Simulated assay, not measured.
Amino acid sequence: MDNQHKTLINELSKLLLGGSAHASFSDAVKGLTPQLRGIKPENMPYSIWQLVDHIRIAQWDMLQFSKDADHQSPKWPDDYWPKESEPADEDAWKGSIEQIESDLDEFIELLEHSDIYQPLEHGDGQNILREALQMADHNAYHIGEIVAIRRFLGNWKS
């Protein structure tokens, strides 16, 4: 791997992990009061739980699409958003967060060991680079919403 490619992979990894230009996912959910996970503030379509689980589902889908030609994506938009405004229990909350973190680690591993420019055989022009940028963009957008809701609810560190 040449230095330019290494630099690109390094920067993509930082972008995916967050924390440079925006809060990381871990920071966005750290210290969140459990009772606030399911609250939908007025004029907001989603609770923090729904945003967290949506990130999990969408990120999982992008990871699976990137590595598995037989992967079938969930039905859009119904299967990308949880219906319940709050997690069923603490295990559901922790499980969603753990999957987000482990899927992100797995995607970064894929990024580091793939030809990121090569179109995926089962796609229609997508490649790992595009999936990395889409994942980073998607996650950052919803992480920002989590932070905004926490601010609105008075539960952000400022």
Rank of each mutant, 00 (worst) to 15 (best):
A58R: 04
A58H: 02
Q59W: 04
D61C: 15
D61Q: 10
D61K: 08
Q64W: 10
Q64P: 00
K67W: 00
K67M: 06
D68M: 14
A69M: 09
Q72F: 12
Q72H: 10
S73D: 07
S73Q: 06
P74F: 03
P74G: 13
P77F: 02
D78L: 10
D78W: 06
D78T: 10
D79C: 03
D79S: 03
D79A: 11
Y80I: 07
W81Q: 06
W81R: 07
P82K: 02
P82T: 04
P82C: 12
E84G: 09
S85H: 02
S85G: 02
S85T: 08
E86M: 09
E86H: 10
E86W: 04
P87Y: 02
A88I: 07
D89E: 11
D89W: 01
D91K: 11
D91A: 14
A92E: 01
A92G: 06
W93E: 05
K94A: 11
G95H: 12
S96M: 00
E98H: 05
Q99Y: 02
I100K: 09
I100E: 01
D103Y: 03
L104G: 00
E106D: 12
F107V: 01
I108P: 09
I108M: 09
I108G: 06
E109S: 13
L110A: 13
L110V: 13
L111D: 09
E112F: 00
E112G: 06
E112V: 03
H113W: 11
S114C: 14
D115R: 10
I116D: 05
Y117W: 12
Q118G: 11
P119G: 03
P119R: 03
L120S: 06
E121I: 12
E121H: 15
E121W: 13
H122E: 13
G123T: 08
G123H: 10
D124F: 15
Q126I: 08
N127P: 08
N127G: 15
I128R: 04
I128M: 05
L129P: 09
R130V: 14
A132C: 01
L133W: 11
M135L: 15
M135A: 14
M135H: 12
D137F: 15
D137W: 14
D137T: 15
H138I: 04
N139H: 11
A140N: 06
A140R: 12
A140W: 03
A140I: 13
Y141E: 12
H142L: 02
I143S: 03
I143V: 13
G144D: 07
G144C: 01
G144W: 12
V147G: 07
